[in-house]
Measured scan of single mutants.
Amino acid sequence: TLFEALYDYEARTEDDLSFHKGEKFQILNSSEGDWWEARSLTTGETGYIPSIYLAPV
């Protein structure tokens, strides 16, 4: 399942991933609670993103 960003997000740590509204992600690991490891389909970068900023596509 792909997810789309509902809002912009600016990374706060080196493990976080910055993204823009409308960016799409492949989720790599969603077992860490509210922060999911994801790969951006726009940039190819991976990192942790807040799941509350996402909606399934």
Rank of each mutant, 00 (worst) to 15 (best):
E10M: 11
T1D: 12
I49M: 02
E23A: 06
L41T: 07
E32G: 14
K21F: 05
Y7I: 12
E4L: 09
D8L: 02
D8P: 07
K21N: 04
I27G: 01
F19M: 13
S51E: 05
P56G: 05
E10D: 10
T1W: 12
W35R: 14
E23D: 15
I49H: 00
D15T: 15
Q26Y: 14
A11C: 06
E4G: 03
G44F: 08
D34N: 09
T1M: 14
G22T: 03
F25R: 00
S51W: 10
T42L: 13
D16Y: 14
S18A: 07
L54Q: 01
Y53M: 14
E23C: 05
G47N: 03
S51Q: 08
I27A: 02
E4N: 03
I49P: 00
T13P: 05
I52C: 15
D15E: 13
I27R: 04
R39L: 10
I49E: 00
I27Y: 02
D16I: 12
S40W: 01
D34A: 10
Y48R: 14
Y7S: 10
G33S: 13
S31Q: 11
T13Y: 15
I52M: 13
E4Q: 10
V57G: 04
Y48D: 02
R39A: 05
Y53R: 05
S18R: 04
A38C: 11
G33L: 11
L28H: 04
K24P: 03
I27F: 03
S18E: 04
E10W: 09
E23K: 01
A11G: 11
P56Y: 06
I49V: 15
T13H: 15
S40L: 05
I52N: 15
K24A: 06
W35P: 07
R39V: 12
E14P: 13
E37D: 04
A11I: 02
I52R: 14
A5E: 00
R12T: 13
S51L: 06
S18K: 05
E14M: 12
D34Q: 10
Y7V: 13
I52S: 15
H20W: 07
F19S: 02
V57E: 07
G22A: 03
G44D: 06
G22L: 02
V57D: 06
L2W: 09
T42N: 09
P56T: 05
F19Y: 03
E45A: 13
L28R: 03
T42H: 11
Y53Q: 05
L41V: 09
I52T: 12
S30Q: 13
K24S: 05
S18V: 03
F25K: 00
R39G: 01
L6T: 06
W36I: 06
N29I: 07
T13V: 08
T1K: 12
E10S: 10
T1A: 13
E23Q: 07
H20T: 13
A55P: 01
P56K: 07
Q26N: 07
F25Y: 02
R12S: 12
L54G: 01
E32L: 14
T46S: 09
G22C: 05
P50W: 14
I52P: 07
S31I: 10
G44Q: 06
Q26R: 08
E4R: 06
R39H: 06
N29M: 07
E32I: 12
E45W: 08
R39M: 12
G44C: 11
A38R: 00
K24E: 05
E10P: 05
R12A: 12
Y7H: 10
G33E: 12
Y7M: 11
S31V: 10
L54N: 00
